[in-house]
Structure formats: structure tokens, C-alpha cells
Amino acid sequence: MPRSHAHLARLFVEPDLAAGGNLTLGKDQSLYLAAVLRKGVGDEVVLFNGRDGAWLCRLTGDSKKSVTLEIIEQIAPQTPKSDFWYGFAPLKSERLDYVVQKAVEMGVGTIQPVMTQFTQVHRLKPDRLSANAVEAAEQCEVLNVPEIAAEISLDRLLADWPETHGTRTLLFADEGEASSSPVAALERLAGQSIGLLIGPEGGFSDAEREKLHAQPFVIPISLGPRILRADTAAVAAMALIQAIIGDWR
């Protein structure tokens, strides 16, 4: 997005966006703009919906219950959806929020909670996961909000993988691997569809590691000589993937 628009508030909306259109926001977003950000008639904001790019819009009504806007012009084209799949064993509260937000910032296309033997959290709130993904996209000028896939057990994920993911390779951060650089292993996967699986605090159980190693579509990687927290491991692995074979190139 041009830097001249970088200072404007950004909101994710569901309706289609096109020049000359008009839009009325719901109560929560109207309250946010009118009461929290104190936006009034004539002020500009940026709207995006994950399909039509980013659009400069101008407030034509500033009621705290229903802000209305005129859609002026597209200021950034829609970016294609990322093919990067990220699965993780859910963590507790703030750290769960953190990994979802960082996955959005790192360009993940699909986020899926995966239940493992040592998973700490077993009751998720999908709405909270989605809200965190939207908030991260709004703050970081991301035009694609990742899909939040339904939680799944590790056993079911592996059993269904060939059918649901085709030829996608699944990388998993394996604490049991001898410390080594993952660069060479990743370079061999250039141009392929990639998935990343991060386990819970305490790692995968021995039985889970054995099952993962037995799958022909799974490649274990080391993240170096230090034991990383699950949220740190996720960010480190996503950064490596994007830098070596992803869209940072």
C-alpha cells in the first residue's frame, strides 16, 4: 500500500468493494470508528475483504451505531491467497493469540489447530482465532486473512493428508532430530506445496514422533541446538520457510 495511505485506519469487511459503491458498517465497527478512533464525516479509512484489494473510503455518516462510507478508489490490488498451511497444537490464551497473529504476518494461507497427546488447550473458541487473524491483517496491511480450519486430531490429520492435501509436503519441527541447519532440506522443496506442523510444549510423544516419521509425505527438520518454546519455534520455522523457499525470495 502506498505510504501516503499507511496512516489510515484499516478494516476488514465482508461485502464486495467497488468504486462508487456505498457501505454501512455494523454496530461494532461503527462504534470503533466513531467513538474509539473519533472518525467523522469526510475522514478516510481503508477497507478490504480478502477478494477485491484495498479501497480508500470516505465517511458519509458517523453514527456510533451505523457508520456509512463511500467507496472512492482501489489503492492496492488483491494479492493471491497463500498456499502455506500451518498446523499447531493450541497453547494457552495470550500465546495462542500470538501464534495466530504471527502466522498471519508470516504469510500463512491456512491455520489449523491440531490436537496432540500433550496439547495444553482442548476447548478452543474459533471466533477468537478468527478475530486475532483479522486484527493482525488489519494492522499489518495483509490483504488475505488466512482460513481458520476446524481443529483436528493428529491421527486424523495424518490419515486424511493424502486425500485433503494431495502432494503437499508436511514439515514438522522435531526436537528429537540431531541439531543441524534445515536450509538444505528446505532448498530441495522449492516450488512444492508446503505444510508446517508445530507441536505443543513438551513436544510430540514418542508414539506421535514414530507415526510422523513413518509417513512418506512428512519431513522432520531441526531448528538448531536450543530447545525453543512452541510459539518461538513456530515463528522461527515460518521465517526460514518464507526466506528459503517462500515469498520472501
Rank of each mutant, 00 (worst) to 15 (best):
A185Y: 06
L186R: 04
P225L: 02
A54D: 12
P220E: 03
R128H: 08
G195Y: 00
G195R: 00
E94R: 14
E141S: 13
A89I: 08
H7Q: 14
S4P: 09
G87Y: 09
E14H: 13
A54R: 08
I75Y: 06
P200R: 10
L91Q: 12
A9D: 08
E163K: 14
S82Y: 00
A149F: 07
A131F: 02
H5W: 07
V36C: 05
W248I: 08
A136N: 06
A214R: 11
R156F: 11
A35P: 04
A89M: 09
I71M: 06
Q117D: 13
G107D: 07
K65E: 13
L170T: 01
G42M: 11
K65L: 10
G50W: 03
A239V: 15
A239R: 11
G202K: 00
A103K: 03
A18G: 13
E138T: 02
Q74A: 12
S205W: 01
K27C: 07
Q74G: 14
S63C: 04
S180V: 09
F204R: 08
L47Y: 02
E94H: 12
A178R: 14
L23Y: 03
E187R: 15
A184P: 05
A233F: 04
R209S: 11
Q120N: 14
Q120K: 15
C140I: 02
P220S: 05
T119Y: 05
H7T: 11
G42K: 12
G176K: 13
P225Y: 00
H213D: 15
F172R: 00
Q74I: 02
V121R: 14
S222A: 14
G42F: 06
S63R: 10
V41M: 06
I194D: 02
G176M: 09
D28K: 15
T110S: 06
A236F: 12
L17W: 09
